[in-house]
Design a protein around this nucleic acid. Structure first.
Lengths: 259, 259
DNA sequence: TAATAAATGTCGTTT
DNA sequence: AAACGACGTTTATTA
């Protein structure tokens, strides 16, 4: 015997019917999808006005809300999780007010015509894994220092200094102190400046020559100039390569490499 | 006589029915919503794996795609606009492959159970206006220089220099050259460093004293220290205040202020 | 809570 | 195409 999950799907409902479904969905912490003609007003850190048009609006059980136009990756208006919803139907239409009290932010969506309402009881405990992040690149170099260069030996990772954290500090085969800054995307001037900030601190602490190496899959034109002017070095390395290297080394604890 | 817009809404369809609807929707450049049990694999700049769970997936006519879990503001997987879709039904389920050839990026969503498919012909030409942006702050100061300080006269806006653009250059009431950097949120060390970069360039060009003013609604602790150490100044100003000032001045062209 | 840096950042603009 | 900076950036991490 089939036992269909409780869900509401209304096609071209009246504003009243739609409002009722939305209220039900929100109070029962369901995922609510509304598609239809609406306008949106936002007031908070900035303020915005979106004139009427047809959009897809998502209200999630965690209090996040998204207004999506029929184009673009990013929502035109939104509220992050933790927001509160209030739904009402008045002479303007079906109005959903989404507000965050602490941040003093409000987004109000007013529907004048609803094409679709769906109230869904979604269950999602699936694990999400991301590979080839900057952290992966860092770990890969710690596990296989030859990815940086032959003879390199890491000493510290995430070394805290005044301006932030130095990704990796180590020594090269000639025992010179080496500061490593990792970028998982094409390195820009900013990356070089970041490295420079670290070098300024290191130079203060130590009186001996220190190498600086910028690790990234690509180097922007301006960044290359700046890097050379500082006498720093560049090592091409992609997050994918690092991710591959990590696969082979899975299981060994990081600490083993700091003995 | 009613003329309902062409749209397809299927509740708990078979994978075959769902696939057919999705293919139709994508080929006709409609907005497609699918809710159901799926897994997602992404491969590109990074790579990721999302184990099965129930999600809402959006495919837009401009080639953008979003996978939303029942929580969080941001999609767990996505592709930006310009992507291409390929839909097929096989032994794994209903598979939608979203790829961008140029960037070598692929996202593949595999549905094993579909709770809802909606194919909508959304029309959205509504204008979007954002107020109290950094641009608004800049314009407000150009229109009403006293927002910065009494006697200030702007000379240039968006002055291109080596590291980027100086928001505003002007002279104060004592005719001293003044460099203005604007931030619409609390200014951090980064903002001070940005200002410093501009000052380095200006100092090269001119041999006379130059003032540097950081405009922002708030100043971070570390930023305040750094600012003082450079001898730069801070002017508190909120985007909201600027937005208000602009309302009163609507209509006058900016160029009128550079005579 | 504040600060800091990463992000599959995205998006717009200009060279 | 590349560079550059803003964004209601958001998100995670750490002091």
């Amino acid at each position: 015997m089939e036992h269909p999950r409780r869900q509401i799907v209304l096609e071209n409902p009246s504003l009243g019917e739609a409002g009722k479904a939305v209220k039900t969905g929100i109070s029962r912490h369901r995922t609510v999808i509304i598609a239809g003609m609406c306008r949106v007003d936002y007031e908070g850190r900035a303020s915005s006005k979106l004139e009427p048009g047809e959009r897809v609006v998502l209200f999630k059980p965690d209090g996040s809300a998204l207004v999506h136009r029929p184009k673009d990756y990013s929502p035109v208006n939104w509220q992050p999780s933790g927001s509160l919803f209030r739904t009402r139907v008045n002479e303007d239409g079906l109005v959903v007010r989404v507000y965050r009290r602490k941040e003093h932010e409000t987004m109000e969506v007013t529907f004048t015509d609803v094409r679709l309402v769906a109230v869904l009881d979604l269950v999602d405990a699936g694990e999400f894994s991301l590979y080839a992040s900057e952290k992966d690149m860092q770990e890969a170099i710690l596990y296989r220092p030859e990815l940086l260069e032959e003879g390199f030996r890491p000493i510290t990772k995430e070394m805290p200094v005044d301006p932030g954290f130095i990704d990796i500090i180590g020594v090269d085969k000639e025992n010179r102190l080496t500061v490593v800054e990792i970028k998982r995307v094409k390195a820009s001037k900013d990356a070089v400046n970041q490295l420079r900030k670290y070098m300024d601190v290191i130079d203060l602490d130590e009186g001996r020559p220190v190498r600086a190496i910028l690790v990234a899959p690509e180097l922007a034109k301006g960044a290359e100039m700046l890097l050379k002017s500082y006498g720093y070095e560049y090592r091409q390395l992609s997050p994918q390569t690092c991710s591959e290297a990590l696969k082979e080394k899975k299981g060994k604890p990081l600490t083993a490499f700091f003995q």
